[in-house]
Amino acid sequence: MNIFRLAGDMTHLLSILVLLLKIYATKSCSGISRKTQELYAIVFVARYLDLFTDFISVYNTFMKVVFIASSLAIVWCMRFHPMVRRSYDRELDTFRHYFLVGASFALALILHEKFTVQEIFWAFSIYLEAVAILPQLVLLQRSGNVDNLTGQYIFFLGAYRAFYILNWIYRYLTEPHFTRWIACVSGVVQTALYADFFYYYFISWKNNSKLKLPA
């Protein structure tokens, strides 16, 4: 564990807390893509199949359980909570996310570290996480306006990815055999998807104005 990895995990956790806060405090999920949230739930369940087979640390197990539980809770709220579900921007959230699931799984069957069920699901979760933000970014682009908490949610999610890249650079320089091509290449792709959002986020922050994305 290095400082970048910890910062990455903490900003990831923070992003989820911000999202839960938004849903809980405003009883609204407007501006949030349910498809992206469903993809994250699939990502965590597929990746943490090792929860019962490999013990790494209490921290590791705790975080895995938190990520699985929170992502399922968010999806549950958006689908079934009587008030929250009414605010869902159904007509804006039309990205064909099943294509992302299919393409990620096909890629995992081709590119993986070992041909075992657990390793294929692990690779699948890495590929799917890389593109899972796309429905969310498309929804924001369509609605144009981004409320503060939604903007902060995506900002922290992007920060988490940026810290993970610094973590890999640090590990590459300090650990003799650190080569994780699948995770690192997918991670760079994932972070690049946030570049556009970050650009507009910083402009609005600099001008102290409301975050708006161009149509």
Binding site: H12, I56, S57, M63, F67, K114, T179
Partner: peptide, 10 residues
């Protein structure tokens, strides 16, 4: 490269 190391990252 060693791919056998446990997946310690989240």
């Amino acid at each position: 490269g060693d791919v056998d190391d446990a997946k310690d990252e989240l």
